[in-house]
Design a protein around this nucleic acid. Sequence first.
DNA 1: CATAATATGGCATACGTATACGCAGATGCC
DNA 2: GGCATCTGCGTATACGTATGCCATATTATG
Lengths: 373, 373
Amino acid sequence: MPKYSLLSRVPATLLQRSIAGHGDFGKSRMGRKPTNRPTSFDIAYRAGVSQPTVSRALRGSKSVSAATRARIEAIARELNYSVDKNASSLRSQRSNTIALLFFEEQAPDDSKINPFFLAMLGAITRECANRGLDLLISFQKLEDDWHVRYQDSHRADGLILLGYGDYKLYEGRLRQLVGQGTHFVRWGSVNEANIGATVGSDNRGAGRMAGEHLIGLGRRRIAFLGQADEHYPEFADRYRGLCEALEACGIAPDPALQRDVVNLEDMGYAATRRLIDEGVPFDAVFAASDTIAVGAICALAEAGLAVPGEVAVMGFDDLPAASRTNPPLTTIMQDLKRAGEVLVETLAAQIEDREAPSRTLPARLVVRRSTSG
Amino acid sequence: MPKYSLLSRVPATLLQRSIAGHGDFGKSRMGRKPTNRPTSFDIAYRAGVSQPTVSRALRGSKSVSAATRARIEAIARELNYSVDKNASSLRSQRSNTIALLFFEEQAPDDSKINPFFLAMLGAITRECANRGLDLLISFQKLEDDWHVRYQDSHRADGLILLGYGDYKLYEGRLRQLVGQGTHFVRWGSVNEANIGATVGSDNRGAGRMAGEHLIGLGRRRIAFLGQADEHYPEFADRYRGLCEALEACGIAPDPALQRDVVNLEDMGYAATRRLIDEGVPFDAVFAASDTIAVGAICALAEAGLAVPGEVAVMGFDDLPAASRTNPPLTTIMQDLKRAGEVLVETLAAQIEDREAPSRTLPARLVVRRSTSG
DNA sequence: CATAATATGGCATACGTATACGCAGATGCC
DNA sequence: GGCATCTGCGTATACGTATGCCATATTATG
């Protein structure tokens, strides 16, 4: 390979732009902010190549020789160069960023974020980092016009939507997203009729597992705390699973034992009180979430009912709090790490125009003393 | 005001760009992706003004008449136009985005994020939303080169750094940040000698408050669980406050009662065990964090020591978990909402070249049954 | 030795917006 | 009515990168 005189190889246009720009701090820089951030032109000048070649080298195009690439990379490192995200995104029409939107049911004054999603945040962040994606995050009130903002303004290539609560409420927005071609994935109940790709745990299977566990312990009258209608499809799936387990053992589910409860500790507490006060007999509680279960345990303790002696209690989610209740809570663990990975992977597939089907993830029973004391 | 024939007012250059571009879907669009996102040129064409006028109108420049602005805004709304974030940021060299970096001490396989910071996330997000800032989020291992990436690549205008743990470990990075002119704020111990702006609670005052509370309850031998050296300045401040309170009452702090403990439940548990096993007499525990306190309560319960009868226990942070221990934990509440606001405000000030001093926020005593049962 | 096929990298340009500058018309003032 | 001033807006251009197309040098092929 011949040795080049560097200068002789420098393209003409380049010389002007780089020298005047940063190369040797020419005077044309005078009136401007002294930011002095090196650009791909500077790298190009130093390396004796054209700016496009720098771009190609750094993005790993195969049409640049190994030697050139190495030279460019070395110089880039030396100058502490990093590609300007805005210019790059503008030109390529790809931001390599995804937006994570949390929905909040209540007024967002407090940091009353669903702890389960907070935990999932870690997994999603990690997976994004692995893929070199930036992650934008935002909490949304239902009234917000988030559905317009992100992809339209090229802030993000796609959206991940997280939010317990009444799914029907924002179904319209989802339709609109599909309409304008926005890429998105939801966490929730996986269902044929869903709008867009959905990732979720096998709630029905998990419900069955929970039921089998409790039945195996000799419980027969299992109360289900969780709103089990189309507004809370995940809760509904869990309830359906429980019913299947009961029926498989020849036990008819008693509608009086199912209570509509939203995902709040207070509600779990109140519903349990009511069960007790009404004198409905029950020997187990399957709460649709750990949060609800915590409330239930509280109410039972107050009523002097022994857990698990008189009433066994199960939750769902395996929040950190679950292992710290008294007694520690048997629950269903959802695989958050996997969930994060799959959510991001599904979204990435969609962005890259690959197949991106909805997916169901397995859940796992975690037995603690609230059922098997 | 005269009525213009729209076309007659349209600038020449504009006509070409808009008509060919999107205006009426001219054939020059053929080979391209059918994205059809309207641009400021389209708005301009429809409004019979030039593109720069659209930009000015939408950004609220005062050099555009009310009538023109209204017309432009109406059209923009009608076309569902939103400013391209990348182009805007590229041109203005401002991303209107800030990056939130969490530091993790341990290997980041689990979602073992410090729950205190997770709670603060809500406040920060909210404040960013209020100011129209986007928020990028990332978890960092100490080895990462985050200090180069964000501002250099124009992803973000500034950084918020959160991370318990050994501050000395990344002091060098902070220096580098200052060196390259990156804007950042930290949460931590506020101190004259700090590098860059810092926002934090009044840890020393809070420590004194805690001490006074316990002393007021008749406790005299107060164990402090938390590493109190320059590596954990916040813990050190809390300890110093406690010592001040003791000395103010004529009690000499006993070094045997201070134990170096990092912010983990297990460590709190272990340290408490050791105190008990060593036979050091103590009638109160002031843990440097709620997490540590939870471990301490556990160890005390195991040893059959009544809380607060024999040993009163206090924590710090007021995590959700604090109200769910048994007995519920007396603690110091840091004002997260305010913290988020001040962090963002401080960073924004810095970005806008305004004065951005470090700030100390007041903390509040929350009395629960672990001290006053 | 002639010609075709690669490999490498330059040239021109587009991405969509924001801003320095200047120009016309309107207004004020004497 | 002449001149300075101010409004309101157009012209030109820059921000920094990525990519289609083409030119040259190199190698392979007959």
